[in-house]
Design a protein around this nucleic acid. Structure first.
Lengths: 206, 206, 206, 206
DNA sequence: CATGAATGAGGGTTCATTCAT
DNA sequence: GATGAATGAACCCTCATTCAT
């Protein structure tokens, strides 16, 4: 359908290579300390070539995030939809999130910087778009809670707050993982039951 | 002992004024978009004067965070120590955290940017110091959990993980508050019981 | 001899289309603010195609001017040659000049920019060629004055100076027209008698 | 009155030095081929220093022209006002113009480039200001003609057109001088009577 | 022959930092 | 001790031009 000429396909590959390198560089140094020159050099292109694909450094940064964020959201939603019971859906959302992040560590750093990093890094306009995506995912999970509350599975509380709380809980562990890279990925996966326990069962015994 | 001459006291006042202005500017624009010139102008000093007090922009930024972070940690610890029962201490730690943040919103933005913003904003060296402080607070709360577990109040789990989870949970709500500034401070305070409920009681009903 | 194949004719047409578009763009934005890309796009060719016809941006610019300038000089000379009396010839040179310019406003902007615009816009080498053409026309008119002086029609003065003066006089009105485009073309034509009056009769009454 | 501190005076001197160098460079190469770096180097300052005085390259260029143009206008008006008879005033305006230009050749190149160079060199906004100044001078001379016409000294014609014509006439000679720098300044001065003769007396003998 | 993707050199501009007063 | 003018290194971005297809 989207039948591209060989030229067109090659162009897409180049674009994709640039995005990949940009993600790595931005992830390592952050937006401001990264330079287009470095990205270009590491992608083995001339500086100006980057600008054929992205109209500014900011645009490149935005695209790096937006496109992966789309992938992320799609992944979580598709994984969740495989389950039938509400409880399983919510649990799956946690696993999918952790799973995706473990496979995209360098993206996650940027994503967190932008969604939870106080949000004054770059321009407002693009910030808005990212936040929107993030909000969308939150709303998606909130809907699961809403349904669950109706079914009497969950306590009566604002479903958005529940989604927010769950998000914060899982983020905390992922952050911790990001920082102490000595921990193996398995270790983070093994924390999943604990997250569920804390959130869905009781921490206090009596 | 700490008896300062008038000159000395005045110098301290100047230093403190600069820190205050710097906090406001850094909070509004972030580290990279803020300029020493702007901070100097707003503090009504010459550019070079800033360098009499802080040896670099980074140093200024670090001091802004470290000093307030110290205040923050002290505040939480002192509030917690007023309570006697472990459960009350933990609950107090939540309230103290939220309370301090509500009174220091502009600081919080910087603090989050640094501790949860993926940590590549600035140099490593100072990052370490901030993380250390943050770790310290986490350990402080973890100790409460450790004690609680011994007393049989909390489930048997890694106390550090519990502290991390609680931190993530409360952070999520504070973040949400930071972004949607239409919400009044009261609204955040009213969310505290929900945080406690999610963490200490069950979300799932059956 | 000049019998061109279809291919050859088509090539000429393409060349001519490019020149036309280039004239419009250069006229609107000047040499430096115009880009080859824009000219190519507006002429509906690829960038590189322009270079098949003109070896550089400067070359294109030069050709735009030189070729129209040739046309201009030919036009004036042929118009003048239709007259028999010297006085009529000189008057015709004014009318022809004004007439041509009114029909080629966008060219005139470039021409003036180059011949009267201080001449540092572009490279010296091509400047020389344009100036030469301009000089040629001036000399042509000067010859008319030289003849007229011999016949006792004009005052005894350096014929080159007279030609220069007449040129400056007419240019002034055309410039004024170029800038205030609200004026209709008729208005400029109506100024011709005044130019003649000033130049050939007296401004001062006594 | 405008008593400046030593620091202040030195700053003015620096500013003035930059303007002087900038005038020379812009005059030699034109706006686009000139670089801030070159101007800075020739003025023996660092690049950034230029930006302490002028907020952009365009601003510098504008200031170069505007300030000298002001000087020019003032000079002509003050010279003219020394005369009493209208005829003498008009003649003086020619002499003042030529005189000033001979003393400021490098400025004149820029001035002509901007006022007669088709006006697409730089930004509109500043162009407007220069044109306005130029218009002002034209109007000043036009007023002389208007008065002269009332007194019956000049033919009945639009005084603005007369001013325009006189301006064009004198410009032509100055241009010619600019281009063929072999001519000595005296030669241009000697042309003044011819300009007057052409304009105020008759070119045609019968 | 026509293309358009790729290039690399270069320009404008900013800012943390220093030094003479 | 405070100043602010001066610095120079560095970065983003543009564009004329070329080359592989």
């Amino acid at each position: 359908m989207k039948q591209l000429s060989r030229k067109g396909r090659e162009k897409q590959r180049h674009r994709s290579e640039i995005l990949q390198v940009a993600e790595a560089v931005f992830s390592e140094k952050g937006f401001f300390k990264s330079t287009i020159r470095e990205i270009a050099r590491k992608a083995e292109f001339a500086t100006a070539t980057i600008y054929k694909f992205f109209k500014s450094k900011e645009d490149l940064y935005t695209k790096v995030i937006i496109e992966k964020a789309d992938e992320f959201v799609s992944f979580v939603e598709s994984e969740v939809s495989k389950e039938t019971s509400i409880m399983m859906k919510v649990e799956k959302s946690i696993e999918a999130k952790v799973g995706f992040f473990l496979g995209n560590v360098s993206f996650v750093k940027i994503y967190f910087a932008q969604t939870r990093g106080a949000g004054f890094s770059i321009h407002m306009s693009m910030d808005k778009r990212i936040r929107k995506k993030y909000e969308g995912l939150l709303q998606f999970v909130a809907q699961l809670f809403r349904d669950g509350i109706k079914e009497g599975i969950f306590i009566k509380a604002d479903p958005c707050d529940l989604a927010l709380a769950l998000d914060g809980l899982t983020n905390a562990f992922m952050f911790s993982f990001l920082e102490s890279r000595k921990e193996s990925k398995e270790l983070l996966l093994k924390k999943i039951p604990l997250m569920k326990k804390i959130f869905f069962e009781q921490v206090r015994l009596k």
